[in-house]
Design a protein around this nucleic acid. Structure first.
Length: 553
RNA sequence: GCCCUCGUAGCUCAGGGGAUAGAGCAACCGCCUCCUAAGCGGUAGGUCACAGGUUCAAAUCCUGUCGGGGGCACCA
């Protein structure tokens, strides 16, 4: 019996009590089923009676008693106690609890998937680094979180498109071209240009590809360096992200917005909705109509579109491609943009609360030997994604970055992450999976098999540690759904750590395989179902984080 | 000045209105003749920044104060 099944049972009990005229309320669609921290409070607890007391006009404990009486009729439920102000503390029968192992094994890689976001069309944009340098640590947090979120949303039934917006138009790109040319010619970095070893390397590769670049007149040369540098840099960015296990469905070029007329189209759309003003020689979007501090310029006095105009075009383009919800994952340094994007959606006739969603992530603070390292691409002092992966590996990097909520400031100590990788919780979780894999290998070598469906006796899983483990396994789908809905992949990581701990405790207390020459018992076989179910959940959970589930460590 | 965000154990951090606030690291004490000790058990460690409010119930929601970080361009 899953928590969801139990919730249904409680709702049914309430409905039955209503039908029998025992209480006068509208039965809720769902009730909250919790797993209490303290097992004295049962396997599960619900506050349903507390919630119904007021509408029913009855004392909570009296309502609780009505529900409890009906729940006790179920064979799946061992006991129901009423505690405190009116909590229902429910203990499942071993049979009902153990059945979960069968459910999980049957579902396999799909266990944890749910339909809470079914058919929602979501566009998920993240990283979106300028192709003027490698992916650095600031982007890396979003790469890990964004990709995990993509997996979570898909697991929750959403139709997700992950998208990388390539800021390949505008001044920054031009400065990159200038910087490359300067590097190729051995000249000092221009005033507002990009410095750093990578600029020299990219410049060298550009010249190697196209030796004539340095011969061209300055203007043409800069433009050519810009284009070649763009291609080289973008290829490198893609490669880094692929290596990091991050998948993008769409790489969307800002340049194409300008070239395709999408910007003009967006202007027309916004004009149609009546929020565009021509004033002071510029074209403005009247975002103050929706509470922005001030209106925003779309076209400058010189006719050039602003970055905001491109954003508007991009947003409208996304909506026209059919996305119900456009999710932006931005760094805290862009948070001034949230209000603008939301008012932009409103000006386009959309609902800012449903069609657009902007997530703001705190920046990762980097310490080296206790001192803060400033991340600056232009100054060249950057920690890149590749450097991080070289130092700690993909698994540790992705896990560590996905382990904290995006809105909490995060401090990474380079010396700590590179030196003490064994302290990383990722190994703790992976170790549980490796330990299980090893056990399953041993079972095979001993010729002990889990056996078919019919031979599985869930009532044998009666030890407290087995109950704990089954309870934790039952939480997984809810964890996935919650993490997807709240856009918080870290919940999966925290859950896995808890599950691993519970498994290790089970392993310590409950022998699975027979010792010596003893024959395999039904208990061994029942436990193999439980162990395999645990392996599946660990593997599925790690998969959602883009972290491998090793069979050996 | 205005806006966003964070403040929980010595450190790094979890904690979607529920019961006695948790984990890892660091410290101390134990546990391998048997499935991976990268493990398990135990001890110690707290003014949940502060003050009000809402609620049967607040670390959690609301208001304010203090402190850290970030942001407020016809820049990108």
């Amino acid at each position: 019996m899953t928590p969801a099944d139990l919730g249904d049972a409680v709702v049914a009990a309430i409905s039955a009590a209503v039908a029998a005229g025992e209480i006068a309320v509208t039965p809720p669609d769902t009730v909250l089923i919790e797993r209490p921290k303290n097992r004295d409070h049962g396997d599960y607890a619900t506050n349903a009676a507390l919630q119904l007391a007021k509408p029913a006009g009855r004392p909570p404990r009296e309502v609780a008693e009505l529900i409890a009486a009906r729940l006790r009729e179920s064979t799946a439920i061992e006991s129901v106690d009423i505690a405190g102000p009116g909590f229902l503390n429910i203990t499942l029968s071993h049979a009902a609890q153990g059945e979960l192992a069968r459910t999980i094994v049957a579902a396999g890689t799909t266990y944890g998937n749910n339909e809470t976001l079914a058919k929602e069309r979501i566009n998920l944009e993240f990283v979106s680094a300028n192709p003027t340098g490698p992916v650095h640590l600031g982007h890396t947090r979003w790469a890990a979180l964004g990709d995990s979120l993509r997996r979570l949303l898909e697991a929750s039934g959403a139709d997700v498109t992950s998208e990388f917006y390539v800021n390949d138009a505008g001044v920054q790109m031009m400065r990159f071209g200038e910087s490359l040319r300067a590097a190729a010619l051995g000249e000092p970095t221009p005033a507002e240009g990009y410095a750093g070893d990578y600029v020299v390397e990219v410049a060298a590769r550009a010249v190697q590809q196209r030796p004539e670049l340095v011969e061209l007149p300055a203007d043409e040369s800069i433009e050519a360096f810009r284009r070649v540098g763009h291609d080289l840099m973008l290829a490198e960015i893609r490669e880094s992200l692929v290596r990091f296990g991050v998948h993008f469905d769409v790489w969307f070029s800002e340049e194409t917005l300008h070239a395709s007329g999408a910007v003009e189209h967006a202007l027309a759309v916004l004009r149609e909705h009546g929020h565009v003003d021509d004033r002071d020689g510029a074209v403005w979007l009247r975002t103050t109509d929706y509470g922005d501090d001030k209106d925003r310029v779309l076209l400058r006095g010189n006719g050039e579109p602003t970055y905001f105009a491109a954003d508007a075009a991009y947003y409208i383009n996304k909506r026209e491609r059919g996305f119900d919800r456009c999710v932006y994952m931005l760094g805290a340094d862009h948070h001034g943009y949230v209000a603008r994007l939301r008012t932009l959606a409103a000006c386009a006739g959309d609902d800012p609360d449903s069609h657009i969603e902007v997530m703001i992530g705190q920046l990762v603070k980097l310490l080296r030997d206790g001192e803060q390292v400033r991340l600056s691409k232009r100054a060249g002092s950057i920690i890149t994604l590749d450097e991080l992966v070289d130092a700690v590996g993909v698994d540790a990097a992705r896990y560590t970055l996905a382990r904290y909520p995006a809105d909490s400031p995060m401090t990474l100590d380079i010396s700590l992450i590179t030196r003490q990788t064994n302290d990383n919780p990722v190994f703790y979780v992976q170790y549980a999976h490796a330990r299980i894999s090893s056990l399953l290998r041993n079972a095979e070598a001993l010729g002990v098999q889990r056996g078919d469906d019919a031979s599985f006796d869930p009532t044998l899983l009666a030890e407290p540690q087995e109950g704990e483990l089954l309870g934790a396994l039952g939480e997984f789908p809810r964890v996935v759904a919650g993490a997807a809905e709240l856009r918080e992949p870290h919940r999966v990581a925290r859950y896995l750590e808890e599950l691993a701990a519970i498994y290790h405790r089970f392993y310590d207390a409950c022998r699975v395989l027979p010792t010596g020459d003893e024959p395999a018992t039904d208990l061994s076989r029942a436990r193999l179902w439980l162990v395999e179910a645990t392996r599946i959940v660990l593997a599925n959970g790690l998969g959602l984080l883009g972290v491998s589930a090793p069979e050996r460590m």
